[in-house]
């Protein structure tokens, strides 16, 4: 609304305000009828690119506890603990501290087994800060296959030892027999 003293200006003000209001209403009407562009977040999500760097995931069966990823991390947020049983691993923890992590992906490249990856999940909400120390393990202790492999290996070893012991025994008995003869 301009400050106009002339009668012409007065009429023009009225005309302008009516016209601009109608134009504005036309625009908002169009917006109102259009489909909303928002995404109902927890129910629907925007598509995420495949190479998005979100929360990590670990292929635990492949991991060999070599610590290469932990060493590569510039801010030391990966910690892991596992007990070795011969070739097999008994996992205790593999934690990633998301209070520190900056999602730089540097931990992914050095992995010799290509088993740590960055996922597409980005929403990480907790009630307590301590929960940001996130455990990537999908199971604790040993994998079933690993246990079976270990049992097999143990059985084989035992069998070998038994065979060995038996062989010695045989030899012994032979020797005894021989002795006897």
């Amino acid at each position: 609304m301009q400050q106009t003293e002339t009668a012409q200006g007065y009429v023009k003000n009225i005309w302008d305000s009516v016209k601009t209001t109608l134009v504005g209403m036309k625009i908002t009407w169009r917006y109102m009828l259009q489909k909303p562009i928002t995404v109902q977040y927890p129910d629907e999500r925007m598509p995420i690119p495949d190479r998005y760097r979100g929360i990590h995931y670990l292929e635990q069966e492949k991991c060999i506890n070599c610590l290469a990823c932990a060493r590569a991390c510039p801010i030391d947020c990966i910690e892991m603990e596992a007990v070795r049983h011969g070739k097999e691993l008994e996992w205790i923890s593999f934690t990633l501290d998301y209070q520190k992590c900056m999602f730089c992906e540097l931990c992914v490249y050095p992995c010799p087994k290509d088993c740590i990856h960055m996922g597409t999940e980005y929403a990480f909400v907790t009630f307590d800060r301590s929960e940001f120390k996130h455990d990537l393990l999908s199971f604790k202790g040993m994998a079933r296959e690993a246990r079976i492999r270990m049992k097999e290996a143990e059985a084989k070893k035992a069998a070998k030892e038994a065979a060995k012991a038996a062989g010695v025994k045989v030899e012994d008995s032979k020797a005894e027999e021989g002795d006897g003869e």
């Binding site: 908002t28 917006y31 109102m32 259009q34 909303p36 562009i37 928002t38 109902q40």
Partner: peptide
């Protein structure tokens, strides 16, 4: 609702 739809939300 009207406010939402005019602003392209639900």
């Amino acid at each position: 609702k009207v406010a939402g739809h005019i602003q392209c939300r639900y």
